[in-house]
Design a protein around this nucleic acid. Sequence first.
DNA 1: TCTTGACTTAAAGTTAGCTTTAAGTATTAG
DNA 2: CTAATACTTAAAGCTAACTTTAAGTCAAGA
Lengths: 151, 151
Amino acid sequence: MTYTIGKAAQMINLNAPTLRFYDKEGLLPFVERSEGGIRLFKETDFEWLRLIECLKATGMPIKDIKTFIGWCMEGDATLEKRREMFCERKAAVEQQMKEMQDTLDIVTYKCWFYENAVRLGSNEKAKELLETAMPAEMQARKEKLTAWCCR
Amino acid sequence: MTYTIGKAAQMINLNAPTLRFYDKEGLLPFVERSEGGIRLFKETDFEWLRLIECLKATGMPIKDIKTFIGWCMEGDATLEKRREMFCERKAAVEQQMKEMQDTLDIVTYKCWFYENAVRLGSNEKAKELLETAMPAEMQARKEKLTAWCCR
DNA sequence: TCTTGACTTAAAGTTAGCTTTAAGTATTAG
DNA sequence: CTAATACTTAAAGCTAACTTTAAGTCAAGA
């Protein structure tokens, strides 16, 4: 069972030009063609595509994904390179998670601040609450957060 | 105490052209100028800049940040709009965190898989371990993850 | 006063990752 | 066999967020 590019695109929530672009960039060396030159996507190709999406989600640029796919095609000789690459991706994502948690803490604090500001009808009055009325889950990060009071 | 654009840029780890670009895009209406037209960054301007960085970190485009800054300049009449905006940002970041956690789970699994593959010298031999030797912390997501075995 | 270095602007250039267009070929339903 | 639709390619276009360039102005030290 194979799929043309349009069907394949539908199935993974991309569009056909994007898949052609990936192919042109060297991300899809495993996709075979019909005699007439039509791309035929196999079931296993969808595993590759999901993996590509995963690597994109880690923030990996297309060129590096291409390099990785190339290693996969070379076989077991490149296992160590691939292991290293995934370690680096893991570290990168963990770093991004940390930064995003910091951002979330600030935004959560802002939500609380603006709820008060709206209730009291004024930014200035909300500021007066800062020392006294901060919820428990924010107290731990109070020092970090009170620098964020003003806007 | 005020700072020229070069000093200010250094202090917040941006560069001067980027700050000029932000200004041109309407993100820095609060920055005042000398008689000769030189931008003078005040202490409070750095609070604004940190807030802009925070909103950028949530994935907010510059145009929307500009809108928000505009609301701030209008005063307490826009408090409700600003509260809503922060709620939306909070939801957006929470969503991003969830997606990143899913990505991290897959990449963590990949690291484990490739450690085995390298140790055993072969992708195929590593696959044989999948059913028997998956670490406890991955067992919970086993069904999700075993679909990711191959590369 | 002069030089130097940092500032000013407008406008053009860059990068990543698509997305669209144009011209043409292949496949399938009737 | 024909028409309609989906595919093919190369190349141009798009968007966001800068970044660089060019030409000129401002400010501080010798």
